[in-house]
């Protein structure tokens, strides 16, 4: 069944970002509390209880939804923190919580049966058997699918489940199956699953050396830049490494996912929602990206056959892309 529209789900790392997203046309904003219960656990980011209240009030007053990401895996000694976060989400009137951990889903489903559950991308569900598992066990209503499937595979997956599917449309690109990557903890001790961070800022060091500017993560050389080269944040899978005497981006180039051109196809497939990555980015980024995607989705939903990517949109999105490069990622099969 094709939903009558595609929801635009935008990131909010702060109250100003939330308001900017709402004002620029987001249907939903997603956010996290200020601790390790969410996968963007960065200093200076995220919401206190009071900020959350104000954010929910602001969005609801304009008829928009707020989704709360509680998408790390509760550690045994901190279970209470995750449980309280679920209780707070229900109390604050969240439109849905985005979860990855089955234990936490069970708690949410039992304690707050009216709270809508979405399966986070961190839940690593790449097939309908997995999605149906979470649906039957906990009643999840929507699943966010890891950025590893080709479009034809997404379509196959959708044929096997009634659960709504949300896809990443734009922003930073995880090459690994989300929820199944421990590279960051291998290098630094902290990972998305356990601490809600990848390649954490506290482990990053920049050094000017005679060989060039070096970026290190917990002492490990991630990249080295010649003068004039654009230096990017040392996310460890996006560095240049040596394999068999050849130095290159062995895992992935620094690039942003951008699926604007796929919109008519996503609409035909019946994708329920498109997610914009970037809770760690500025309100200006959120505003710019939201505005472009709002226009694009509206154009596409009006007449998907006549839909064409406006070059001005690409220019706008290009300005905020990582490494100023854009890719269709795994949706385009040869990328693999």
């Amino acid at each position: 069944m094709q939903p009558d529209r595609i929801e635009l789900v935008c990131p909010a790392g702060s109250l100003p970002a939330l308001k900017t997203a709402v004002d620029n046309g987001a249907d939903c904003v997603y956010m996290g509390f200020r601790d390790d219960t969410n996968a963007r656990n960065f200093t200076g980011l995220n919401f206190s209880f009071d900020n959350t209240k104000e954010g929910v009030r602001y969005a609801h007053a304009k008829g928009k939804k707020v989704l709360l990401a509680l998408n790390t895996y509760p550690q045994s000694d901190g279970w209470q923190r995750w449980k309280t976060a679920i209780d707070n989400a229900a109390e604050l009137g969240m439109d849905a919580v985005i979860l990855a951990d089955p234990g936490l889903m069970q708690y949410a489903a039992k304690t707050h049966p009216d709270l809508r559950l979405h399966l986070s991308v961190q839940g690593s569900a790449t097939n309908y058997e997995a999605i149906n598992f979470y649906h039957e066990m906990f009643g999840i209503r929507r699943a966010v699918v890891p950025r590893v499937l080709a479009l034809a595979q997404v379509e196959q997956l959708m044929a096997g489940t009634q659960v709504e599917i949300e896809l990443f449309g734009f922003g930073g690109l995880c090459v690994m199956v989300e929820g199944r990557c421990a590279l960051s903890s291998y290098a630094t001790g902290d990972s998305p699953n356990t601490r809600g961070v990848c390649s954490p800022p506290k482990a990053v060091r920049w050094q000017e050396t005679p060989k060039g500017l070096e970026s290190r993560l917990n002492g490990i050389l991630i990249d080295r830049y010649a003068s004039g080269e654009n230096a990017g944040y040392p996310t460890l899978c996006k560095g240049r490494f040596d394999v068999d005497g050849e130095t290159y981006y062995a895992i992935e180039e620094p690039a942003s996912l951008n699926t604007l051109e796929l919109l008519p196809e996503l609409r035909r497939m019946g994708i329920a929602a498109i997610k914009i990555e970037g809770r760690q980015r500025s309100p200006a980024y959120v505003g710019q990206v939201t505005k472009v995607w709002r226009q694009a989705i509206d154009n596409c939903c009006r007449d998907s056959k006549a839909f064409a990517v406006n070059p001005a949109w690409m220019t706008e999105l290009g300005k905020v892309s990582e490494g100023q490069q854009q890719t269709l990622g795994a949706y385009y099969r040869p990328w693999k």
Binding site: V148, L149, A150, V175, M176, V177, R180, C181, A182, L183, Y186, C237, V243, D244, E246, A250, I251, E252, A330, R333, P334, W335, K336
Partner: peptide, 20 residues
């Protein structure tokens, strides 16, 4: 340690081949 899984094949990528 098996640390991460991807849709992309990094061995094929090293040889400038597509996964398929």
């Amino acid at each position: 340690l098996p640390l991460a899984f991807s849709a992309r094949c990094f061995t094929a990528r090293h040889h400038n081949l597509q996964k398929d």
